[in-house]
Design a protein around this nucleic acid. Structure first.
Lengths: 232, 232
DNA sequence: GGCAGTGATCTGTGATCACATAGCACTGGG
DNA sequence: CCCAGTGCTATGTGATCACAGATCACTGCC
């Protein structure tokens, strides 16, 4: 059997082997898009039933998410989604602006031309999706892909992990604005700040990109604060 | 039995209940002080033997440390301490300066007078310890306590967790400089920058503190680069 | 002599069982 | 009517067993 050449063009890397990781990824995505309410309690056995596995993979996934701050184990050993307090929200916003700002600035100095083209495609898709009256989860995903395409280009893997972590912890806040009031009225100025970020990449000017990103985040934050009713 | 009053003055909170957490803490400290060599492989069963428990608590601790970037699970599912490459080292330094700089600046605006007094005590102890010819692990611990007393005063719990994580990932680098060349020749200028950090707290000037911290870190970094021989 | 094939051994993963404890509805005395 | 006491249920934690896959030394054919 010839293992070289085009015969293998249709082969994909195996779909994330270990069961624990699959549970982790699904639960993670579920949290990141605001699938559960802050303060809501989860139980291992309830999750095992949902995923159809045994306790073990769920235990691993939950513990890992707890280590990342996306879940919380109370002194009672009960598991819940962290409460969303205003102080925590403000801290997360401040950290996001700092961390993602650094990533944008770093990316501006080293992103490839091909990646910039891809950025423009993501943003086109994002804009098209936002024109639809009924903003869907798709717009969220496209927005996320746009942002992380930049962050990946920064070439700072540790920072990238931190930023993923921030988005993860931010997820439950989205529930407040998106879940309650139907799908969130997406930030109207996002395409504009995205355009400025792309422009900064072309001009290799990190500080312009950093400012555009800050505006992008603050735009979303304003919406959350307006619609979200976050407890003090 | 009267549970109020001074009868309970000698009671301490129970020593970190769950077995998994104890293993996690011990392994964590071991890694943070550079107890294992970068690239060294670990096995669960070897650790279970060392800790005297069953596989379960060790599995939990190892997975958590892997989630935090202090350990690494290879595609072979083997577990090892991450390799210490120069690019990663530089990234960690950059992030430490940014994150810990923010913490210092934030602490300067809100730290209490009592905490400042405690800072001076830590630094006195640190200086005294450094005068000893044979610099021990004690000086490392006092230095750590000094830094984290400031970071805790910043009142930013999420940031605090990130910084702990950075120190954890930094640990194996210390092995290079401390383990190989005997105990590291501690940064001679550390007391000076510590003094400047204390001064900035008193004057409520975050930017002075941030600069002092950066000098402190860069001083240590220079030592590591000089003695450590970190692979490219 | 080099190397594919093979078997034993070791390692991480997943399932199942056992257990201490938290949570809670119920009850009976005040 | 309130509340301490009590037993039941559910939950997270830890131990043990089973298993697939990786690693590696060995072997025997080319």
């Amino acid at each position: 059997m010839n293992l070289e050449g085009p015969a293998l063009s249709g082969i994909h890397p195996v779909e994330t082997n270990t069961l624990g990781k699959r549970v982790y990824n699904e639960l993670r995505n579920f949290l990141m898009v605001g699938g559960v309410q802050p303060g809501e309690k989860l139980t291992l056995r309830q999750l095992t039933a949902a995923f159809g596995t045994s306790l073990m993979p769920v235990r691993e996934a939950v513990h890992r998410l707890a280590a990342e701050g996306a879940l919380e184990v109370l002194p009672n050993r009960a598991i819940r989604v962290p409460m969303m307090l205003r102080t925590r929200f403000d801290e997360l916003v401040q950290l996001r602006i700092m961390l993602e700002g650094l990533a944008v600035a770093s990316a501006a100095t080293k992103i490839s031309k091909e990646a910039i083209v891809q950025l423009e495609e993501f943003n086109q898709g994002f804009i098209a999706e936002m024109r639809q009256p009924r903003t869907s989860r798709q717009s969220f995903l496209l927005n996320k892909e746009f942002h992380f395409a930049i962050y990946r280009a920064a070439g700072m893997p540790v920072l990238l992990g931190m930023i993923e972590n921030m988005w993860l912890q931010f997820g439950p806040f989205l529930h407040f604005s998106m879940g309650v009031k139907g799908r969130m009225a997406t930030n109207k100025f996002a395409p504009e700040s995205h355009r400025r970020m792309i422009q900064s990449m072309k001009e290799r000017d990190g500080e312009i990109g950093r400012k555009a990103l800050e505006d992008d985040i603050r735009g979303a934050v304003e919406l959350i604060l307006r619609f979200g009713d976050i407890p003090a």
